[in-house]
Each structure stands twice: as C-alpha cells, then as structure tokens.
Write a protein that binds this DNA or RNA. Structure first.
Lengths: 137, 137
DNA sequence: TTTAAATAATACATATAAGTAGTATTTAAA
DNA sequence: TTTAAATACTACTTATATGTATTATTTAAA
C-alpha cells in the first residue's frame, strides 16, 4: 500500500504521545524520543494540529497535546491529514472516471480490495498501534 | 495502492499490443496510438524487453513484439519489471522487520489484505485488461 | 558501402516528496 | 519590559519519479 514516510512518522508521534499518557509534550522532547529530524517533526506536528488531531499551545510553557481518545483517532484520520487521501480511492489502472457505472476492466475485482484497504485505515486506531513494541521503534 | 504512472503506461502498451494482434509494432506506431511521450514510451519499451515481457528487433525493419500469450502475462510481471516490487511486501507501519514471528501492531490485520493485493496482481493478466474500453484510453 | 529506419543508451530537465535551516511570532516568567 | 522557551512560517536542499533531448548502435535496402 505504501503509506508515505511522513504519514508513518505522524502515526509514530501520535502513538508515542498516547502511550506515554502525558498531557503535554514539547517538540524537542518528541524529537529526542522518536529520533526524527527536528524541523521535519515540528512541521508534521504543526500539520497535525492544523487538522485538530493534536492541539498546540504556543509560548513559554507550550507544547502539543492529543485532542481525542486514542481509540477515537483512526489511522485514516492521520493519513488524511498528511496525504491527499483521494489517491486511495482512485482507479488501479489510472482512469479518470472509473466507477460501478463506468468500470475499467479490473474495477470489479479491484473495488472490494480497495474497500478493505480503506476499511483497514478506518477500523484501526491509535489504541491498536500504541504498543510497547511500536514505541521501541 | 497506487501503481506508478510508468507501470500503468507499461500495462497500457502491452494491452494495446495484445489487443491489436499484430506481430510487430514500431515504437512510433505505439506512441501515435497511445499518446504517450515519445522518448518516455521508448524507454519503457526497452525496459520491458530487458525483462523479456516483449522482445525487440533492432534495425531497419525492427520493432517490438509480445513474447508470451496475453493470458500468461500477469499485471504482477509488468509491475515487477518497472517498479521495485519489494515495496508491495513491506510493513504498513514501515518497520524493517515485520513478520509473523516479529509482527508489528497491525501486522495480523494487514497481512491478509496485503496478500490479497499481491494475489490481485498475480491473478490478473493482460487478457483480463485488453478490452476495447481500455484501449480507448 | 552508403543511407534510412529502427532500437539503445546516456544525459539532461522538471515535479513532487522528504528533509533541513533560518527567521518570525507567541507567551509568561524574571 | 526584557528575555527565554516554546510553536509557526517560509525558504532552501536533497532524493526520487517522471518526462525530454541527444547521440550511438543495429540492420537491411538501395
């Protein structure tokens, strides 16, 4: 499937934040813990807060906090915040229009797999990912 | 899933060649028919012939010909010729090692979908794709 | 044996994703 | 009100996929 690297990093951060149960994390703290490039992670954090998956507190005692409960944050939410989610709905063969009404040659076989894929993103949440194993990354 | 553009072009060319049942096609002829950039298509053709999906005849009366029967050329074959096929087997979360023995948090749920995906590529052939509809592209 | 018509190879250009650096802004303590 | 500690923004760099241009090689007809 190939989630983008950026999306994977995003999942890792949120997972880490949820797992360690602190209210507020500074960017530096997360950089330290997750070993992701400073500026890159900060940009990801800003993007995530713009999409209300986390909220940011600016200023001296600022940082980032998860907004919802881990079991309410889906992988889909995070991927949609980072990537253009449309591409997960597109035609395998690259046709502009490809639907049940105007199917490409593989549409009928592909559609169910694509649906499973989207369901996978929707059915799995940070609660499913935030294991010790994952945060050992 | 996102096959690369290049892979999609490759599928289109092979499909076109199979559908029109000519023995030999020149690159220019295929460029004309499929409206893909001249040099780009030629490079794709060379790659495909290096992977023995088509064979090339150099020189004055040269061109390209499909080597096998359409029903024997899988989408997987073509994608594997064009892309690094490994990425279709990788971990959703991006772990270096992720297997039944050392699974990531989502491995158990992801593995079956990934397998279906690979099966999809393997079970569908040019014979399945070479419809009029497709070649109207 | 020259030449035209084809493929092959190499190098260059452009677009996008990934990653980095520097500057601006915000906030509250000193 | 200055300053330190934080996030936000903008611009730059690097890597990879996509696409283009040029030159070399191959082949067979003239």
């Amino acid at each position: 499937m190939n989630l983008s690297n950026t999306a994977r990093y995003a999942i890792r951060v949120i997972s880490y934040m949820a797992y360690n149960k602190k209210e507020l994390y500074t960017a530096s703290e997360l950089v330290e813990a997750l070993q992701i490039s400073d500026k890159y992670l900060k940009r990801i954090l800003t993007t995530l807060s713009q999409h209300h998956i986390i909220r940011s507190i600016q200023g001296r005692h600022g940082g980032f906090a998860i907004t919802g409960r881990p079991e309410d944050i889906t992988i889909y939410d995070i991927v949609a915040a980072i990537e253009v989610i449309d591409k997960y709905y597109g035609c395998v063969l690259g046709f502009e229009v490809c639907s049940d009404e105007h199917p490409c040659a593989l549409h009928k076989k592909w559609a169910p797999i694509r649906d499973e894929l989207v369901q996978f993103l929707n059915n799995n949440t940070i609660a499913d990912v935030m294991t010790t194993e994952f945060n050992k990354f």
